[in-house]
């Protein structure tokens, strides 16, 4: 898995938009992965109050969810998000890093199912919950 996360295809995934918002890998296990990004005023929806836009939180959840699938199947397969549903259970006050822990709970031949929880410091007090499905492209 360590080699997996160092693979060039994965490095490319962490470039582009993931790099732009400063995504970093925190940890991973057999069927889960944790990504985070630090607070950055560039990612605020409204400069006047500094509250994060949801866009970076969705990108974080989308990327963490994809990575959880790689952790579960122990390889990087080309895939695309089929659908993603997010509940914003509370607002995140500006200034704190956001962490997302995604768990891939089922993989079939062509579809992977992932749930994810995002928090701003206390995993027991989340800011968002999500459910997503991905399908494997190509092959």
């Amino acid at each position: 898995m360590t080699e997996l996360l160092d693979s060039s295809s994965l490095k490319r995934l962490m470039a582009g938009h993931a790099g732009e918002i400063g995504l970093r890998r925190v940890d991973h296990g057999d069927d889960w992965a944790e990504l985070a990004f630090d607070y950055d005023p560039r990612l605020a929806m409204n400069a006047a109050n500094g509250v994060l836009a949801s866009g970076p939180i969705i990108s974080l959840i989308d990327s963490a969810s994809g990575l959880a699938i790689a952790a579960k199947i122990k390889t990087v397969r080309p895939m695309a998000t089929l659908d993603l549903r997010i509940d914003y259970v509370r607002a995140a006050p500006p200034g704190r890093a956001i962490t997302a822990r995604a768990t891939c709970y089922k993989v079939t031949r062509s579809v992977a199912f992932v749930r994810c929880v995002a928090h701003d410091g206390d995993p027991a007090d989340p800011i968002a919950h999500s459910l997503a499905t991905f399908f494997f492209t190509g092959d």
């Binding site: 938009h17 949801s54 866009g55």
Partner: peptide, 21 residues
């Protein structure tokens, strides 16, 4: 380039963020 996800495609989070906005 700042919105690229998997190579050659827009990041799903950017599309969702745009839809939300």
């Amino acid at each position: 380039p700042a919105i690229e996800g998997r190579p050659g495609f827009i990041h799903g989070g950017v599309i969702a963020g745009l839809l939300e906005m």
